[in-house]
């Protein structure tokens, strides 16, 4: 179960939403400016809301009333940003392994070889990020987030920057990944058609508010 509750404002924008997803793949949908990325940043801990609560399967990351606010690095949440944000001075392999060493050994359940073969990264390991195509960069970014052995994976428009063929390919990788590692996912998209196949729960946001919760095609846990 994924619970996200947040009240926040900056400038004219006001965000006030309470989302409960019973499945393990939640999609946040809506036009740009609806507050989707803001919600992801709150879940990741990169933005602290005025008031809010974030809990995944009973583990509380943020509860402003209860005085809980875990630092981003202690949340162990993998974040695939809208742009890949790969470290330009490190090889693909060192990018992938970056978060591995910071995860406590006892909690590491994602294996390097499993990730590279699942995402088809084996032949890219020695390259620098500037020698990768858009789709390859996105796959490395997904792999890097997975290798943190995250309790939750956040993906901000993982398909937006790709052409149709690549989009289909990455979608397939995300589905395989969900089956292989059973990590809950929250992802953001501005197209409902794109998320219906992938999501168990869909939250439609408009101008900082939740306007609709609906079921997606993916099986729900309950």
């Amino acid at each position: 179960m994924i619970e996200i509750e947040a009240a926040h404002s900056f400038g004219d924008f006001r965000l006030e939403a309470r989302i409960q997803a019973h499945g393990d793949t939640l999609a946040l949908c809506g036009a740009s400016g609806a507050g989707k990325t803001t919600l992801l940043n709150i879940v990741a801990g990169l933005l602290r809301p005025r008031a809010g609560r974030v809990a995944i399967d009973g583990t509380i990351f943020l509860d402003t009333k209860g005085g809980v606010d875990l630092a981003p690095r202690l949340r162990r949440i993998g974040y695939v940003f809208q742009e890949p944000r790969l470290f330009p001075h490190l090889s693909v392999e060192r990018n992938l392994r970056y978060g591995q060493r910071f995860a406590p050994a006892a909690q590491r359940f994602v294996d390097f070889e499993a990730v590279t073969s699942l995402l088809g990264l084996g032949s890219l390991l020695a390259r620098r990020p500037d020698r990768l195509s858009g789709g390859e960069k996105q796959r490395v970014a997904i792999g890097r987030a997975l290798l943190v052995s995250p309790r939750l994976l956040l993906m901000d428009e993982p398909l937006a920057a790709l052409d149709d063929a690549r989009r289909f390919e990455i979608l397939g990788y995300i589905e395989k990944m969900r089956e292989a590692f059973s990590i809950p996912i929250v992802f953001v998209s501005h197209r409902i058609s794109e998320v219906e196949r992938l999501a168990s729960d869909i939250a439609v946001l408009d101008n900082g508010r939740l306007v609709e919760m609906r079921r997606g095609a993916a099986p729900s846990a309950t």
Binding site: A44, R73, L74, R85, P88, G99, A103, R144, A145, V148
Partner: peptide
């Protein structure tokens, strides 16, 4: 140095000193 790369390091579990020595300083 792109602060979003430092944020990425932080989201990957790196403490601030590690982000500095592995991302900020080399760049």
């Amino acid at each position: 140095v792109d602060a979003r790369l430092e944020q990425a390091g932080e989201s990957l579990g790196a403490p601030p000193w590690a982000v500095f020595f592995t991302v900020t300083l080399p760049l």
